[in-house]
Computed example of a mutant assay.
Amino acid sequence: MSLTKGLFVTFEGGEGAGKSTQMRLLADSLSARGYRVLTTREPGGSVGAEAVRHVLLSGAAEPFGVRMEAILFAAARSDHVEEVIRPALRKGIIVLCDRFMDSSRVYQGVTGNLEPAFVETLERVAVNGVVPDCTIIFDLPAAVGLERARRRAANDSPDRFEKEQLETHEKRREAFLDIAEADPERCRVVDATRPPDVIAAEVRELIEALLPRLGEPGPPNAEAAS
């Protein structure tokens, strides 16, 4: 089942918040009901963006400064939007994305101390009118999320962002909550300290409210405005 204009949902939050798990559970639920669903991620999601992903998460770009990292994130996002997300939305597909523009606002903007005007300009160019219909922010204490991330990684080394100080991660948590407060129509905050099945039920309820009934027009999205 395709929607008239597609639906773009992003999953945001700190390290270990359970975004990937919840995105998979929602995708499985929607697919079982006959919807066409595309799951993707950032950084990455397209051939060009995946090439940049390793550079960013390995820390190879870190010596060149946060401004360079922000530019690389924006370049990866632009390729992702134009090669994957926009075409899928045009086909009426539900696109679920693990991280998007709000992560750049938080990681490079707030805790990277980049000027808001610089971050906003990069965002505008990178998304090129494709803004999420709904952003779900998974909220939990930074210490809990980091412990989850470390258990998940097992013997792997922490990535570029997981290795940072707890204070930085807690500041990011607050920044995500500030984004949600400033944009309540788009953003929904979900308590990520609860069991996964309880969280999944809430996520399904949030997204089902955006899905059109059979025969009705699909929900508006950024594609229509671009």
Rank of each mutant, 00 (worst) to 15 (best):
K171D: 05
T121A: 14
P43K: 05
R152F: 08
S31R: 02
P196M: 06
I179N: 09
E50R: 12
A75Q: 03
E120S: 14
A180F: 12
P195E: 07
I71S: 11
G112D: 06
P43A: 09
T10D: 03
F100E: 00
K5Y: 12
A224E: 12
F8H: 01
V55G: 02
I137H: 04
A117R: 10
A76Q: 05
P217I: 05
V189G: 01
E69Q: 10
R90L: 13
D183W: 12
Q108P: 06
P217N: 11
R24K: 15
E115H: 14
R173C: 03
L140R: 04
S157D: 11
T10H: 04
I93K: 01
R67C: 03
G112V: 11
P220T: 15
T168G: 09
M101P: 01
N221I: 04
A76C: 09
C134K: 14
I71L: 15
V52M: 13
T121P: 03
F8A: 01
V203W: 00
C97A: 07
H169D: 06
E120W: 03
H169E: 09
F176M: 05
E147P: 08
R53S: 08
R204H: 08
L114S: 09
C134Q: 15
E147N: 11
D98V: 00
S46E: 05
P217L: 15
H80A: 02
R99N: 02
V119D: 07
R160F: 13
I85K: 00
V190E: 09
C97K: 00
M1L: 15
T193D: 10
R41K: 13
E120F: 06
R160L: 06
V198R: 04
I94G: 01
P141T: 12
S78F: 14
V119S: 06
G59N: 07
A126D: 08
A182Q: 15
A60E: 15
F8L: 01
H169W: 15
L72Q: 08
D159L: 08
L214V: 15
E82M: 08
T10L: 03
P195C: 07
A154Q: 13
V144I: 15
S104V: 10
P217Q: 09
G45Q: 08
T111I: 15
I85N: 00
A225N: 07
V190Q: 03
V127F: 01
L96Q: 02
E167M: 11
E164W: 14
P87Y: 02
A60K: 14
P217D: 15
S31P: 04
T135E: 00
E12R: 01
R204K: 14
